[in-house]
């Protein structure tokens, strides 16, 4: 079996691949695609598409968005195939379809590879080959650079690997315009800087899990104190970065207000994580930051979407005028 050969781990399915009955439900197969990650990808890519300066037929846009989502799902399946050994050892991931034996590693690999190729080829045929190449690079980055290389090697795994989750708005802009610009790059940067405080807030309370699985996550490599400092530093960088789209003319007044207030709340919660280091208070602060970080990203992107797609935005020129006045 390829999975055994590549990972050096026994197959996680109880019966093995060779003579097994396919017993997984449709839901098990869908779980391979990490639906929650897919929904984030669809949402951020949609915003990338809406803010892009160009026009695209709605059918082509919708199908392209679907193909980006399929590419993300396929890389999720490849990640589950590769990580089946460590997934089985962590409480957060032990109920995934491969560790529970509902789907075999080989099935996940086949689905991941075939859907990766299909999503890239069809995006090339339907949209353009630059966007398709970018999607291929994103899948490669997540499945190979992050999953196979960084995750088990360095505590910076989710910092660098976070780029894979941040690329979708750029791929989406590439679909619309055939190129990328500073507009989607700033959206990329926001998601990129958001990933470490978001993920480490979760990792702080799950550090035992990662330790057990041998994954070098920041809390069990540099220690919880260092992780808390880094969470605060990244959040202090993220909050002002979140306001930058206003100064670029990408967001209007509403975006400016939402990004400033939610950015300040992110900083306040990161300070709580930094200060509360022991016991239930620490866990509560970590969970609060983790939960709010999801809302924070949603608010920023939802505001951009509302301003651009539904015409709710005004004052797009205020930010750029302020910048040119200062310069």
């Amino acid at each position: 079996m390829i999975s055994d050969h590549m990972s050096g781990q026994p197959d996680a399915s109880p019966s093995g691949d060779d003579a097994r009955v396919y017993s997984g439900s449709v839901r098990d197969y869908l779980e391979l695609f990490k639906p929650r990650v897919m929904s984030l990808v669809i949402f951020t890519a949609l915003v990338g598409m809406v803010v892009a300066k160009g026009h695209l037929h709605p059918v082509i846009a919708a199908v392209s968005l679907g193909l980006i989502a399929v590419g993300a799902g396929a890389s999720g399946a490849l990640n589950m195939w590769w990580d089946q050994d460590i997934d089985a050892r962590m409480s957060r991931t032990a109920k995934r379809p491969i560790p529970t034996g509902q789907v075999t590693g080989s099935e996940a690999l086949s689905l991941g590879l075939s859907l990766s190729v299909a999503s890239v080829v069809f995006l090339g045929l339907i949209a353009n080959w630059f966007a398709a190449g970018f999607l291929a690079f994103t899948i490669f980055f997540y499945a190979v650079v992050y999953s196979m290389w960084l995750k088990r090697w360095t505590a910076q795994n989710i910092v660098i690997g976070g780029a894979a989750g941040a690329f979708p708005p750029m791929v989406a802009e590439a679909v619309v315009t055939g190129s990328v610009s500073w507009d989607s790059f700033i959206l990329f940067l926001i998601i990129f800087m958001w990933t470490p405080p978001h993920f480490w807030a979760l990792a702080l309370s799950k550090s035992g899990d990662y330790e057990k699985a041998g994954v070098p996550m920041m809390p069990n490599v540099a220690g919880p104190d260092s992780t808390r400092t880094q969470i605060l530093v990244y959040t202090l960088l993220l909050a002002p970065l979140g306001v930058v789209p206003f100064f670029m003319g990408l967001g209007g007044w509403t975006y400016a207000v939402v990004s400033v207030i939610s950015g300040l709340l992110m900083i306040a919660l990161a300070v709580q994580v930094y200060r509360r280091r022991e016991g239930a208070a620490a866990t509560k602060a970590e969970q609060a930051l983790f939960g709010f970080s999801i809302l924070y990203l949603f608010l920023l992107f939802a505001t951009l979407l509302a301003e651009h797609a539904f015409g709710l935005g005004s004052g797009f020129d205020v930010g750029p005028r302020l910048v040119s006045g200062i310069i």
Binding site: S13, S15, A19, R20, V21, Y22, G24
Partner: peptide
């Protein structure tokens, strides 16, 4: 997870497995 062999030496699916297979086929 391996099932009993039937008279022809093939795998006999349980009713639940048959239901799962039907659902998968419909999804495909």
């Amino acid at each position: 997870m391996l099932d009993d062999k039937n008279a022809d030496g093939g795998v006999e699916l349980t009713p639940e497995q048959k239901k799962m297979r039907r659902t998968r086929n419909i999804a495909i």
